[in-house]
């Protein structure tokens, strides 16, 4: 029994270690400002999500789509939790292509909460053409699509610096400490005071990076809080049931005169 548990734990530790080992070259250690949504009792900070939404809309949305997110998600539990009226107002600021109408024409109309976030470009090729040959990735699951997750996105946003001496960059290419290969075609999107936060928080680059990363982490995992909550209850329940079944097992096996 002890051996069983030892073995199990060894395998578990091995799995966890093996999965966190990178197969790549040496990479910079990522920045970590502390994320409230990580850990067993992790939750999203509503204020941070709302500020992050503002950063996304005012800074990122010009190039980056977030097509799997719907405006109605903004008022659902576990997210920024804007009110339904706020969400209606937010949605109506954007134009959505709909149709065809009875004349056979496509037309535009204001977005409704049920619509998905409007993309800045009609399609991927248009996005690439408008951005010097590089595609600004869709951000719906970007936090899950990068090794290092939230730490990586946060670090990247703050990782712009002058290239080391001797390294020359083409036009439209910038140096970033955390990007694989160090070259990135996105210029530094953040600078202090770029956005004016509605709640008065000072919009430093670090603050905006943290808020928009939190927002993107929620966008990638909108059910994170429910998952943590249900998980906690499920595991406590399983532990209690395991203990009960353990004693049931002992009772039953006590009937066997000599267990070898």
């Amino acid at each position: 029994m002890k051996n069983f548990l030892k073995f199990f734990l060894t395998i578990l530790v091995f799995c966890l270690k093996a999965s966190s080992i990178s197969a790549a070259e040496q990479t910079e250690k990522l920045l970590n400002p502390g994320w409230g949504f990580k850990g067993f009792f992790g939750k999203f900070d509503r204020g941070s999500l709302q500020r992050g939404y503002q950063v996304y809309t005012e800074v990122c949305a010009a190039c980056h789509s977030i097509k799997y997110l719907s405006y109605r998600n903004l008022s659902e539990t576990g997210g920024p939790e804007f009110t339904e009226d706020q969400v209606k107002a937010i949605a109506s600021q954007f134009e959505v292509t709909d149709g065809p109408n009875d004349d056979g024409d496509m037309f535009t109309r204001p977005a409704r909460p049920a619509d998905n976030f409007v993309s800045p470009y009609a399609n991927e090729k248009a996005a690439i053409a408008a951005n010097g040959g590089a595609y600004p990735p869709d951000m719906s699951v970007l936090v899950k699509a990068r090794k290092g997750g939230a730490d990586y996105i946060y670090s990247l946003l703050l990782g712009y610096e002058d290239p080391p001496s001797g390294l020359s960059l083409d036009d439209g290419v910038y140096y970033n400490k955390y990007m694989a290969g160090n070259k990135i075609k996105m210029s530094n999107p953040l600078s202090d005071g770029l956005v004016e936060y509605g709640d008065g928080t000072s919009a430093t680059s670090e603050q905006m990076a943290k808020d928009v990363t939190t927002f993107l982490a929620w966008a990638a995992e909108p059910h994170l809080e429910a998952r943590h909550k249900i998980g906690f209850r499920a595991i406590i329940y399983l532990i209690i049931l395991t203990i009960l079944v353990y004693f049931s097992m002992k009772k039953i096996w006590s009937r066997v005169e000599s267990k070898v």
Binding site: F4, L5, F8, L12, F40, R227, H228, I230, G231, F232, A234, I235, L238, I239, L241, T242, V245, Y246, M249
Partner: peptide, 17 residues
Amino acid sequence: LFALLIFLIVFAFFVFY
């Protein structure tokens, strides 16, 4: 059943966390 429950606890850690 007992062994399965231990297994499920490990499973639950992965799924939920």
